Simulated scan of single mutants.
Amino acid sequence: MPQEFQEFAGATALVTGATAGIGRGAALRLAALGAEVVVHGRDADRGARVVAEAEATGGRARFVAADLSDPGDVLHLAEAAGAVDVLVNNAGIYRFAGAADSTAEMFDVHMAVNARAPLLLVGALVPGMAARGRGAVVNLSTLAASVPARGAAVYGASKAALELMTRVWADEFGARGVRVNAVASGPVRTPGTVKMGEKALTSVARATVLDRPAEPEEIVEAIVFLASARAGYITGAVLDVSGGRPAIG
C-alpha cells in the first residue's frame, strides 16, 4: 500500500457532523489514510452512505447517531465511539439574525451544539488520550469568530467560545501528549451554504483575497494536517483557512 495510506493506521477518529460537507470529506479522507472512523450524524441513511463510501475504497467506518443539542446524546456518542485517537469537532449550526430578531432559543441552541457539545466530547474522550500519551483534537471554527459579520453575532460568539476553549484545552492536555487546535474557515461551498443562495455565498467570498468560496476538500486538508503527526509541534493554534483578508486603503 502507498505510505500515505498508513498515516493514520491503527488510529480511531471520531468526526462529528460527518454525513455532509466538510465533515463528510474529513471522515472519508481519514478513512482513506488508514483510520477507523466513527461517522456521526443525525440521519442514519446519510450515515450509511458515508460508511459505504469509506468501505468502497478500503477504509473502515461505522455510524453513530446523536443529537448534539442534547447533552445526554453527546455523552452517548462518546461512549459509543470508545477510545479515540483523533476527535474532529466539525458539527455546527448557523442561523443569522440581527439583535432584535435573535431569540433565547437561537442563542441556546448555538451554544449547545457549537460549544457545549465539543466541551462534553473533549471531557469524555481526551482524558483517555492523555492516559495513552497521544491524541489530537481539531475544532472547526469560522472567520466570523474574529471578524464582525452582519447577522452573525450569535453564531460568531459560539465559535469564539470554541476558539478560547481550544487554547485552554491545549494547555490542559499538552504536557500529556494531546494536541488541540482549530481551523477557522472562510466561506465554503457546501450543501448547507448553497441553500442560503449563490448570491449570498459569492458576496461573502468577494471579501477574501482569493475572491472565491473554498471547496470542502480545501478545509479538509487543513483538518487532516492538524490531526496528523506532521503537525506534531502545533497546539493551541487557530489555523486561518479563510482565503485571505484584503488590505484596506
Rank of each mutant, 00 (worst) to 15 (best):
L68I: 02
R49P: 00
L119N: 10
E7L: 15
M111S: 05
A184S: 15
G151L: 07
L28H: 01
V238H: 05
G10V: 15
Q6T: 12
A182D: 03
A99E: 10
D73C: 01
A54W: 05
A100R: 13
V183Q: 10
I93W: 01
F107L: 15
T12K: 14
G135M: 07
E215W: 11
L201V: 11
P118F: 14
G135S: 08
A229K: 12
P118R: 08
V238I: 15
W169V: 04
P148A: 12
A237F: 08
T57M: 08
W169G: 09
G128V: 10
G249E: 13
G232S: 15
L30V: 06
G186E: 07
F5I: 10
S102W: 04
L75I: 02
I22C: 05
E105Y: 01
V37M: 09
E198C: 07
E53C: 04
A66Q: 03
L119M: 15
A161E: 00
R189H: 09
R245D: 04
A81R: 02
K195V: 07
S228R: 09
G41N: 09
G92R: 12
A31H: 02
I22L: 10
G177H: 01
L226N: 07
E105Q: 13
P2T: 12
P213M: 11
G34T: 10
D67T: 05
P118A: 12
L28Y: 00
S146Y: 06
H110W: 14
A161C: 11
A131W: 00
R206W: 05
P118W: 11
M165P: 01
A214D: 12
L87F: 08
L87R: 03
Q6P: 00
G177A: 09
R95M: 04
R179S: 13
T142D: 15
A66T: 01
L162H: 09
R179W: 02
A52K: 14
E217L: 07
N90V: 04
P216V: 07
A78I: 06
E215F: 11
R134T: 11
I219E: 01
V74C: 07
G151C: 11
F96E: 09
D85K: 01
M165D: 12
G177M: 07
L75E: 14
G243V: 10
R176N: 10
I219G: 01
D70V: 07
M129F: 11
A104E: 15
P187Q: 05
D108V: 02
A131T: 13
A161S: 12
A66H: 03
N114H: 09
S242G: 12
S185E: 01
I248S: 13
L75V: 13
Q3M: 14
L119I: 02
A78R: 09
G232L: 05
V183M: 03
S228V: 14
A207T: 15
G177I: 06
V39P: 02
L30R: 09
R212Y: 04
S146M: 10
D171P: 00
S69E: 14
A18Y: 08
Y233P: 01
L162S: 08
D240V: 05
G243I: 06
G72F: 00
G72Q: 09
